[in-house]
Amino acid sequence: MILKVLYQSDGEPVSGVKISEAAEISRVAVWKHIKALKQAGVDIKALPTGYALQDAGNLLYPFCFPKHIQDKIFYFPELDSTMDQARRMARQGVRHASCVIAEVQTASRGRLNRPWDAARGGLWFTLILKPDLPPPLAWTVNFAASACMSEVLAGLFDLDVRVKWPNDLLLKGRKLSGMLSEMETRADMVDLLFLGIGLNVNNEPESDQYQAISLKTALGKPVSRKQVLARFLDLFESRITAIDPARIISQWKERTATIGTEVRVQTHDRVYEGKALDVDDTGALIVKGVDGITRKIIYGDCFHS
């Protein structure tokens, strides 16, 4: 309640008395709650006239979002993994396209079970999807998501964000976002699909070990995580209302950085090197190997040379 009161003040200071009355708690309790929020990383400034929220665009609580999606937003200060939490919540019957967000993840993972650095300031979330799809078409959701996020970031910040097969995002050749999907089937249809997305926003992922970049680094200033997520959720849900594989592939190809590039693709048991020629209508990558043989690669981790 206290955070909501501060958020709705649009950055203007709110006195301890008004907060106390709105939350129906004592002034001492208000002070304790403010202190706890600041310790949790919320930027609240104490002024002579009251308390003011400094970085409202970085908050990801349900009340921060447009009303039509508020009941789909589930925010947690810390989780082991949004993917694992999404699985637990799916059993509780949450709505299609519900979004599980964590400020910090302590055991996040990427493709091929690689660890993913999910520190404060990034955008870490998993979507709980209930698509009317057979399992062979589940790949379309991943491709739609990466193309949508690329479009959203290009539109908001005028950045040349590109998709890398199968569903990473690159900015200036560095990794900006990674996506991971897991599904559960029932009979011959997808029952649940969990789409985990990690986007470097206001964190600083750059290191000698990881060729990564964040929006903050690229733009030289922090940006609104809430704005990014709200735009993405609206666009993505509209794109998957009626799945059209040909349209999704076409939209993905418009933003690709992989086709025409020399690549190294690592699967569970092999490594393929060559030139990426195309992505076919099943989402598979067509690679002409250094041995001259053209192969269709259905799944793997792709690295650009």
Rank of each mutant, 00 (worst) to 15 (best):
R88L: 15
E273A: 13
R27T: 13
R295G: 05
Q39R: 14
F236E: 01
Y210P: 12
P66N: 12
I297D: 00
Q92G: 11
R231L: 12
G93I: 07
L176Q: 01
P13A: 11
G57Q: 05
T267L: 07
V30H: 03
R186G: 10
P135T: 08
A36S: 14
S20E: 09
H68P: 08
K164I: 01
I34L: 12
L171C: 03
V271N: 09
M149R: 00
T258I: 04
A154C: 14
E103R: 06
W116Y: 09
S250A: 14
K221D: 12
T185Q: 07
D132G: 13
L60R: 00
A29Q: 14
V152M: 08
D117P: 00
H268M: 11
L285H: 01
E206Q: 07
K288D: 06
E206F: 01
L285V: 02
N200R: 01
L171R: 01
S81D: 02
G173K: 03
E103I: 02
Q211K: 15
E254D: 15
M149K: 03
Y61F: 15
T258Q: 01
A56I: 09
N58T: 14
V100P: 00
T258H: 01
N200W: 00
P166L: 05
I25C: 07
V42A: 03
T82K: 04
D168G: 06
I286F: 06
L277D: 04
L47R: 12
L123Q: 06
D281L: 11
I34E: 08
R87H: 12
L180A: 02
L176W: 00
S15C: 10
I293T: 12
G198D: 02
R239H: 08
D281E: 15
R255A: 13
L60F: 04
A46L: 14
A230F: 08
D117W: 04
D278R: 02
S224H: 10
E237T: 15
E206Y: 01
K45T: 14
L169Y: 03
M189Y: 09
G50C: 13
Y61G: 06
L233T: 05
G121F: 01
E12Q: 15
R174P: 00
E237R: 14
L123T: 06
A276G: 04
R109Q: 14
C99R: 02
T258R: 03
E262G: 09
S150N: 11
M183G: 12
I2E: 06
K172W: 12
I69H: 08
H96M: 10
R88S: 14
Y299R: 11
C302F: 02
E78S: 12
I249P: 00
L47T: 13
A147N: 03
V94K: 04
L3Q: 06
D117R: 08
T267Q: 11
A257Y: 02
Q105Y: 01
L47Y: 03
F76H: 09
M189V: 12
S20Q: 05
M83Y: 06
A276N: 05
L153T: 02
R270C: 10
A230N: 07
K172N: 15
V100H: 02
E78H: 08
D208V: 12
A230E: 10
